[in-house]
Design a protein around this nucleic acid. Structure first.
Lengths: 224, 224
DNA sequence: AACATAAATGACCGATTGGTCACTTATCTA
DNA sequence: TAGATAAGTGACCAATCGGTCATTTATGTT
C-alpha cells in the first residue's frame, strides 16, 4: 500500500504533483550536496531519486536555483527566535542561559547536512554564511557580552553601550568556536567522536565561565 | 636582469629545469586551489602561470598527483617539532606554555592558503585531515591534559595514566577550537576581523584557564 | 471511455573537463 | 656550430556537465 512499486515487480513510474516533487528534490539535494559538495551532478542526484535529471529542470530554473532552495531549507528553518529572548532573560544566571542556548543550538544544528553545507557555502563565499553569522553576532554574541558586563557589575562596570568592546566580543566568539568546533571535527574532518555532545557542550560552557584552573570534573557535575 | 621578459617587450618563452618548474607549479597550485577549491581547472591554473596546461601533465602524472604535492607543501612543512617539547616543559606554568604554543601556531598556520586547503580537504575526506588532527591530539591535546592533571595535583589527582579521560581531552579540544575558529571566521567565512590575532589568542588561552567570571580585561593584561 | 493537462522521459546540444600526442623550440653539450 | 635532449605548445580526444525539447505516459475531469 505504501509501497511505491506496483505488484508487477517492475517499478512503475508515478507522477507526482509539482509541490510534492519539488519538496522531494530539495530534501534529497540537501543530503546529496552535503556529501558531494555543490559540484555534484544533477544527473547523479536524479539517479538517486530514480528519475530523469530533466525532471529537476522542470521544477527548478537552474542548478543554482536549486542550491538557493537548499540554502533556505537548511539554514533559515533551524533558527529558533526564542533563543534571542533566552539570552536576555535576567531571571537566570548568564551561564545557565548560555548553557541552555548552546545545548539547544547543538541539538538543532549539529548534523551532517547542516554543517557540511554551511562550511561548503562558506568556502564558495556566496555571502550566505556572512549573513548567518551576522545573526549569531547580533542576537547572541553581542547581547551575551553586554549581559556579562551587567552581571559582573562592581566598580569596573563601564557605562552600558550598544556595542561592547572588541575584546569582550571576541571572548564569546571563542566560546562559540569551542562549541562549533565539535561539529566541525565530527562532520567536516570525519573524526569519530565517542563523546556525548550535550555533556561536552555543558562542560565547555562551564569551563568558559569558571576556567580550567578550578577543575573540570566539578564543573561538569555542577553545570546547569 | 631578473626580468623574465626579453628586451623586445614580447614575453619570450623560457624553458626551465624540471625541478624549478615543478616548484613553481606547486606554489601556484596552492594559492589556486585555496581560492577555487580542488574543482579548479588545470587550464586556468596554467593560464595564471602563462604556460600551456600540458606542461602540468609533463611534470605531474595527474591532477590528483598535483593535489597530493599541494598537501605536502601546505601541511607537513608547517609543523614545528619543538612544539612537542614546549608542551612538556615543566619549568614553566602550563598556561604559559599553551599561550606560547598557540601564538606560534597561529602565526604559522593562520593564512589563507593553509586554512582553506585544510578545510577543503576535510570536506573531500582524503583522510589527510584525520592524520593531521591525530598529530594535534597526540602531541598537544593529550599531553596538555596530562600536564593539567599534574599541575593541579592536590587530593583529587588520579594516578597518572597514558590517556586522560575523554572529558578532560575534550576540554582542550575546546580550547583548540576556540583558537582555530578565529581562522575559520577569517578565511572560510570571510568575516573581516579587525582584531589583533595574537592578542586574541592570548586572551582566549587566558580565559580558558581563568574563566570569564574572573574578568577579561585583567586576564588580557596579565596573559603571559 | 475520451479528452485535456501535467509529469516524466531520453535523446540531444554546446561548453568544459582531465589527459594525450605529434610537433616545435629552447637549452645543454661536444 | 651541430646534434642531442629536455621543455613547451596547440590541436585533439573522450567523458562529463548544465540545460533544452519533442515525445511519451500518467492522472484528473467530464
Amino acid at each position: 500500500m505504501s509501497d511505491s512499486k506496483s505488484n508487477t515487480g517492475r517499478p512503475r513510474r508515478k507522477n507526482m504533483r509539482a509541490a510534492e516533487r519539488e519538496k522531494l528534490i530539495v530534501e534529497e539535494a540537501v543530503r546529496f550536496f552535503a556529501e558531494s559538495g555543490f559540484e555534484g551532478q544533477t544527473r547523479e542526484l536524479a539517479k538517486r531519486m530514480g528519475i530523469s535529471h530533466a525532471v529537476i529542470y522542470r521544477h527548478f530554473d537552474s542548478k543554482d536555483a536549486l542550491i538557493e532552495r537548499v540554502y533556505d531549507h537548511v539554514y533559515l528553518k533551524r533558527w529558533n527566535p526564542e533563543w534571542e529572548q533566552l539570552i536576555l532573560d535576567r531571571d537566570r544566571p548568564l551561564q545557565e542561559r548560555l548553557t541552555q542556548f548552546y545545548v539547544a543550538y547543538a541539538d538543532r544544528v549539529f548534523d551532517y547536512d547542516w554543517v557540511r553545507i554551511f562550511v561548503s557555502s562558506g568556502l564558495k563565499s556566496y555571502g550566505l554564511t556572512e549573513r548567518y553569522l551576522g545573526i549569531i553576532r547580533t542576537k547572541i554574541i553581542e547581547p551575551a557580552a553586554l549581559e556579562l558586563r551587567e552581571s559582573r557589575g562592581g566598580p569596573e562596570a563601564l557605562p552600558p553601550s550598544d556595542t561592547p568592546p572588541a575584546d569582550e566580543i571576541e571572548l564569546f566568539w571563542g566560546l562559540h568556536g569551542a562549541v562549533f568546533y565539535i561539529a566541525i571535527r565530527k562532520y567536516v574532518y570525519n573524526i569519530p567522536l565517542e563523546i556525548n555532545v550535550e555533556a561536552t557542550v555543558r562542560a565547555t560552557v562551564a569551563n568558559f565561565f569558571e576556567g580550567a584552573l578550578h577543575g573540570t570534573r566539578q564543573a561538569n557535575m555542577q553545570a546547569f
